[in-house]
Amino acid sequence: MTSVELNNVTKKYDKEKVVAVDDVSLSVSKGELFGLIGPDGAGKSSIFRILTTLLLPDGGTATVEGYDVVKDYKTIRGNVGYMPGRFSLYQDLTVEENLSFFATVFGTSIEENYELIKDIYIQIEPFKKRRAGKLSGGMKQKLALSCALIHKPSILFLDEPTTGVDAVSRKEFWEMLKRLKQQGITIMVSTPYMDEATLCDRIALIQSGKILSVDTPSGIVKSYHGKLFAIKSDAMYKLMNDLRAFEHTRSCFAFGEYHHISFKERDKDYTEEVLNYLQAKGHTGVEIKSVTPAIEDCFIDMVEEKKSEA
């Protein structure tokens, strides 16, 4: 059963000059936790806004729970939960008032669906008389999720829910999502953080409005072909410049305390050549090792591929 389906969806802004979503096709199954992973400006929010019927696509069709986003927008609006990237609840209403307002707007009440939001709401319940504007970032996000869930939607759209939230809250948030998934709710989430990608069932990597790849996180990692090395020395910045100047280098970028490097001949081990080259350049404390690629490596690799194709 598919929950969300996009067929060749295109969206352009500024009189057709800026292409935000470029011929995107993908489908999300029922009960899946699907991640839309890509940098800022990749078109993630536009896709969300099309699926939540806030934005009309310029081309292609999209359905949510089998309903067309253009024709059946009324049905969709009653069945989806949407949490926009920006906190957009009434800051001058209290936690409780916000929640009961959105409940009544959907023709339900807090009591009716309390079970669904209990886990999340219980954490902010001590502050229910506090105005939403006075909550901390993590609590705002919990309130927004509660409000998006209060009418028991069958699918949840979360647009960058963890942007600007501390590491602990982010972890908590993903745990909440997992629990929601167990209740059979389809969740579509977008994030610019590659490390969150592994927490999804399936992910779509997106760049400049185009889908680069759709697969499970491990499938994406597997599809990375060739070897990847982590390398460090005492002068990291110089190391980066030197490595990028190295004739066999395909790509080199910072990754934590190491630089990740791949070579043009992808399966060949260049360890010797690199060490010699760096020695000649006067680097000390050089350390190089082979690593298994992360999602981020795959993403950068695909972007590189796109560039070399173009």
Partner: peptide, 13 residues
């Protein structure tokens, strides 16, 4: 401006 209209727009109001 504060984005609440987005939230209202996805509701069946």
């Amino acid at each position: 401006e504060i984005g609440t209209i987005e939230q209202i727009n996805v509701t069946p109001i």
